[in-house]
Amino acid sequence: MIPDLDYAFYVWTSYGLFALVMAWQFLQPRLRRRQILAELREERALRTGGYDDANS
């Protein structure tokens, strides 16, 4: 089984950083999209006078 313990910290930290960066690149646009959609929902509510908040 790898990696050798002498290098384990360096190797796993590198792979961990890779996982973190990839996860952030996947999640960040989705979180941003949710935020934009929430803003649009609010704008529409202000425009139409009705506010149907599914989270309330």
Binding site: Y10, V11, S14, F18
Partner: peptide, 18 residues
């Protein structure tokens, strides 16, 4: 493992593509 660098060379598979 690499004959000189041992297992630390596996960082290459993240470092080089990045």
């Amino acid at each position: 493992p690499d004959y000189q660098q041992g297992d630390s060379f596996r960082i290459l598979y993240i470092h080089v593509p990045a």
